[in-house]
Amino acid sequence: MTDKKPNDHLHGITLEMILTQLVEHYGWDTMGRIIDIRCFHNFPSIKSSLQFLRKTPWARSKVERLYLRYKRETARIK
Rank of each mutant, 00 (worst) to 15 (best):
R65F: 06
F40Y: 07
Q21I: 01
E16G: 06
I13H: 01
V63M: 10
L15S: 08
M1D: 10
K4R: 14
N7T: 15
H41A: 12
A75I: 07
E24T: 03
N42M: 09
I77H: 08
L22T: 03
H25Y: 11
G27N: 05
R33L: 08
Q51A: 00
D8H: 09
L68T: 01
R38M: 13
H11N: 12
I13W: 01
S61D: 12
W58V: 13
D29L: 15
E73R: 13
P6C: 08
A75Y: 11
H9V: 09
C39S: 10
N7R: 14
P57R: 07
D36I: 10
D8K: 14
R33I: 06
R65T: 10
I13L: 05
S61C: 11
P44M: 05
K47V: 15
R33P: 02
F52P: 00
I37S: 01
C39W: 03
R72T: 11
S49Q: 01
R76W: 07
R76H: 10
H41M: 06
L10A: 02
L68W: 04
Y70N: 11
I77P: 00
S45F: 03
F40E: 02
T20N: 11
L10F: 00
R38T: 15
I35V: 13
L10I: 08
I34W: 00
M1F: 10
N42K: 14
T14L: 07
E24P: 00
H9S: 12
L68R: 11
D3I: 14
I35E: 02
E16S: 08
R33A: 09
K55S: 13
I35K: 02
K55H: 09
L66M: 11
T2L: 07
Q21P: 01
A59P: 04
